[in-house]
Structures are given as C-alpha cells and as structure tokens.
C-alpha cells in the first residue's frame, strides 16, 4: 500500500488561484515599469545576520575539489549588484531558503517577492507596498505608525529612552508564559514585546500596519536617519497584517564601510552563539563601493500574501507540497 503523502498539500483550486495571483503581481510591476529579473539561487557567499541560517552545500568539481555554496535566504545581494550596474527599478519573485524555520507561517523553502526602486523615496515605497496590498490582495488601506508611536500607544513605552531592565520587567510581568531565566538583550526584549503584546493588538483591526523607523540597533541593511522627533533610527519598515509578518523594507544603506562593520559584528555574534560564520559577499561590497544608487527596497512573503487573500491559516494550504513531502 502506498500512502497518500504524494498528493499536494494545497487544494487544486488554491494552486490555480496561486498561478493567477503571481500573474497579478507581475501585472502590477509591468504597469509601473519595473523590470523582472532572476538571479542565482546558489551563491558563494551568504548573509551574516545572526538569526538567519542559510542551507549550505558544496560544489564538487570534476577533479573532486569542493567549494562551499549557500542557498539564498533572499535575492537581495545579487539584486543590489544589478542596481549598482545601473539596471534601474527591478523586481524578482524567487524561491528562498531558511534553515530551521518551520511552522504554520513558515516553511524552510518559500517564495519571496523582492523589489528595488532607485526612483522612489522611503515613504513612497511604503505607499507602493500599500497599493500592492490593496490592489493584488484586496486588503483595506494600511495604517502607518512609527516604531516609537506604536510602543508608546500600545505599551506606554518611550523606545528612545527605555532601559533594558524596564523592558525586561514589563515582559516578565505581562508574559506569564516566559520562564524566569529568559535571556535577551535590549533588541531581544523589544522584539518579544512587539510579537507577543503589540502584534496581537494590531491583528485584531484587520487592517495592515506599516511600522517604520526601527531602532538603529535593528538596522540590518537600512541606512540610519533622523526621525521626525529627532532620534537616530533605522530607515527600515515592516508590514503586519492579521497576525502575519508580511514585509521588511529599507532605505538602503549605501556605505560599504558601515555595512562591512555590521557584517563583521554579525559574524562575531554568530561565533559567540557557536554558529558558523558566513563568508561576506565581496562582490556585493565591491558593487556598493563602486556606487550603489540611492534606492529603497522591500521583500514580501508571497505565500503569506496568498494566505491572506484566500483566508487560510497554514502556509501549506497555498504551496504545492509541504516541506516533509518535498
């Protein structure tokens, strides 16, 4: 007897809706004159972010010589090289891979929509994300709030002055599920409060929320700038809708020196946690150094968008086969 595991995890109807959905996304960008690109999935370098784990593999040459390779966690680095080369506004729908991430909203392999806009400012890009969510997913208009505002409104915390100790006390008193020996740094506590106390409140309204101007310590590849209230923050935004984290966007950092420093610090954290350090993408560094045009960029989980559109709760209901069946 064969088991039934060969069958798709999504219904045939959902797979047809998926195909239609991808067409609508492509139409959205075609109408805006954004060029579709596709870049290598397999890379000799990998992101250094401490909590992002690449799948690693090897290229074995005919003579047996082995070269380590990584499956991309996002097409970001290759797309930035295309930007530096002068290709202009570009987008990509790519398969990406993240080791160790699996759950109702996560699959180790998923589909990412990522686009870069030399012609749009930080706030214009947020508006474009909102347009996409409204026209392609049929969500209501997004509500925009800064990271500072959202913490002040929902938790009465001033993020620019709050101490690590105060965050810890708040988390410990409000999150009864947290063991007493929970360890985190300031960003760790902020992330926990965001996901466990703020996001559930944002989810209940049904509207997407665009949260912008993250703490400078969570800049990733975003540039730092001055916020409306005069603090130095990261020009980074995230989009949340109905309990799903949908998108992460930046006004891109153009300073190779600064990025190189962040990557080195990342690798140090990886080392402290007993994780393998990642080879910094020297082609990316060279491209940025040669002159990455001022640009904004954002990455969105396509499967999660489709989950919202179809009203389903499990990512495997919108993908042809779940990871265990792949």
């Amino acid at each position: 007897m064969y088991d039934k595991d060969w069958q798709p995890s999504a219904s045939l109807d959902h797979l047809k809706r998926r195909a239609q959905f991808l067409t609508e996304i492509r139409r959205f960008f075609y109408q805006r004159d954004v060029l579709e690109v596709d870049t290598p999935i397999l890379s000799h370098a990998a992101p250094t972010a401490p909590y992002l784990d690449s799948f690693t593999t090897q290229y074995i040459a005919a003579g047996g010589q082995k070269t380590p390779c990584y499956l991309q966690t996002s097409p970001e680095f290759a797309m930035k090289r295309l930007l530096a080369a002068g290709l202009g506004d570009i987008y990509q729908i790519a398969k990406v891979f993240r080791n160790g991430e699996q759950g109702r909203h996560h699959s180790p392999e998923f589909t990412m929509l990522e686009w870069y806009r030399p012609s749009l400012s930080y706030h214009q890009l947020m508006a474009e994300v909102d347009d996409l969510l409204q026209s392609v997913v049929a969500l209501p208009a997004a509500i925009k709030m800064s990271y500072q505002q959202v913490f002040s409104e929902y938790l009465a915390i001033d993020v620019s002055t709050v101490s690590e100790q105060q965050l810890k006390q708040l988390a410990m008193s409000r999150l009864t599920s947290l063991p007493e020996d929970w360890q985190a740094d300031k960003d760790g506590w902020l992330e926990l409060l965001m996901s466990e106390l703020i996001e559930p409140q944002l989810a209940s309204s049904g509207c997407p929320y665009i949260i912008y101007d993250f703490p400078a310590s969570q800049a990733q590849l975003a540039k730092l700038h001055r916020s409306e209230d005069g603090n130095t923050v990261a020009a980074r935004f995230e989009v949340y809708a109905q309990g799903l984290e949908l998108a992460n966007g930046y006004d891109e950092c153009l300073d190779a020196e600064e990025l190189s420093q962040r990557f080195t610090e990342d690798n140090l954290i990886r080392q402290q946690q007993g994780k393998a350090t990642m080879p910094i993408d020297q082609h990316l560094m060279a491209a940025i150094n040669s002159g990455l045009p001022a640009c904004t960029g954002v990455a969105i989980g396509v499967d999660r968008l489709l989950m919202l559109k179809l009203g389903v709760k499990d990512i495997n209901d919108v993908t042809s086969f779940r990871f265990e069946q792949s």
Partner: peptide, 29 residues
C-alpha cells in the same frame, strides 16, 4: 506548538500544554 520568528530576531516556540499531574492547561515560551 507554534513557531514564532519576530522580525529579524531570535525564533521561539509558543507552547500550550497540559500539566498531566494537575490537569491544568498552561503556556510556556
């Protein structure tokens, strides 16, 4: 059991469980 990965931060699991001795349902991260 729910896998949660906030932003770019460290992942955690939100777990609802029954204490088999007391019968009580609780949550632990």
């Amino acid at each position: 059991n729910e896998f949660v990965k906030p932003g770019k931060g460290q992942a955690f699991n939100r777990v609802k469980f029954r204490n088999l001795k007391t019968g009580r349902v609780n949550e632990r991260t």
